[in-house]
């Protein structure tokens, strides 16, 4: 069994050998094929080729397979070398294809990078322009600020000087105003003093003119009956006019003063009659004063008849003194006090 098999195998192998030898001399090593094998193996190991030229590499492997088959099948060296050459060329194609694609990818990357760098360049140029502009501007700005600072200092000094001037002026004006006020006050005081003195003098003069005598009740003017009235008469005589006018003028000037007109008689005749006569005489003077502009409410009248004689009724001259009217003018706006009985 084993012997037969061995024989049979031997026989078959011998037959094959004879056939192959008959066709192609021997599967001698082919340098081109061996080179192609090495190249294909190297290409398959190359990461770029195996990645970027998959189809081309497979084609190279197929061509190598064909070459191997031809070689195994005992094709002529020429045929095997041709097949190997095709495989070798295909390996080259795969390599160049991969290289080209890699470079194409690199070109794309570089184009992107160039765009980025161009942008950077543009940004840098803009930056430089900005920096130069900033420098120019800041120089101009600095100059402007310096100028402005100078101007402001000058203004400040000017305004300080102006302020000092103005203050001095204000102080001078104030002083002048105070002086003027003081002068005015002084003048006023002087005028008031003068007026008061003049008024006092005038009053004194008037009082003197009226032959008035100052008393506790006020100024008392005694109008003698010889000046004013006839015996047993209450009509004012013509000569009384001037005295009445003087009194009216005095009362007009001192508008606040009140007046009390008191009438008197001598002791001759009935007392009641004399009281009436004295009242009529006082009323006559009041009427005359009202006639010359003195307000009625300022004037009161009293009739005392023979009371309060100022002289003796025993003789003619004494009785004449007692027939009289006394006009009492208050020293102020108060009523003239009544006689104390």
């Amino acid at each position: 069994m084993t012997v037969f098999r061995f024989f049979a195998t031997r026989t078959t192998a011998l037959a094959f050998s004879l056939i192959l030898v008959a066709c192609a001399t021997t599967p001698d090593p082919n340098p081109a094929l061996e080179q192609a094998r090495t190249s294909v193996a190297a290409a398959a190991q190359d990461s770029e080729i195996s990645r970027l030229a998959v189809v081309e590499l497979r084609r190279a492997q197929e061509l190598l397979e064909s070459a191997e088959t031809a070689w195994k099948q005992g094709a002529t060296q020429d045929v095997v070398s041709h097949q190997a050459y095709l495989a070798e060329r295909q390996v080259g194609i795969a390599a160049e294809s991969a290289r080209g694609r890699g470079l194409d990818n690199r070109v794309s990357e570089l184009r992107s990078e160039r765009e980025r760098v161009q942008l950077e360049a543009r940004a840098a140029r803009a930056e430089r322009e900005a920096a130069l502009a900033r420098a120019d501007q800041s120089r101009a700005e600095a100059a402007r600020l310096a100028e402005e600072a100078q101007r402001m200092r000058a203004e400040l000094e000017a305004s300080e000087a102006q302020a000092l001037r103005e203050q001095a002026q204000r102080e001078a004006e104030t002083a002048r105003a105070e002086r003027m006020m003081a002068e005015a006050r002084a003048e006023e005081l002087e005028r008031e003093t003068r007026e008061m003195r003049e008024q006092a003098e005038r009053l004194q003069q008037q009082v003197a003119d009226l032959e008035a005598r100052p008393t506790e009740r006020g100024l008392v003017l005694t109008l003698g009956s010889d000046v004013l009235f006839d015996v047993d008469s209450a009509d004012l005589r013509g000569g009384a006019e001037r005295t009445i006018e003087q009194i009216a003028a005095f009362l007009a000037e001192y508008g606040e003063r009140q007046v009390l007109v008191e009438g008197f008689t001598d002791s001759t005749g009935a007392r009641d009659y004399n009281l009436g006569l004295s009242e009529r005489r006082a009323d006559a003077v009041k009427a005359a004063l009202i006639e010359r502009g003195v307000e009625e409410e300022r004037i009161r009248t009293r009739g005392f008849g023979p009371d309060y004689p100022v002289a003796s009724n025993d003789n003619q001259s004494g009785r004449q003194l007692n027939r009289r009217v006394e006009v009492v003018i208050s020293d102020d706006e108060q009523q003239v006090p009544e006689r104390e009985s």
Binding site: R99, G100, L103, D104, R106, V107, L110, R111, E113, R114, V117, Q118, E120, A121, A124, R125, E127, R128, A130, A131, L132
Partner: peptide, 28 residues
């Protein structure tokens, strides 16, 4: 493609030089 890469790389290098110079000129 190789030439294109070289040209691009040269161009980029020139641009980078320009950028560097420009930035140098605009330093504070």
């Amino acid at each position: 493609a190789s030439e294109a890469v070289e040209e691009l790389e040269r161009g980029i290098a020139e641009l980078r030089t320009e950028v560097a110079r420009t930035l140098e000129q605009s330093t504070p």
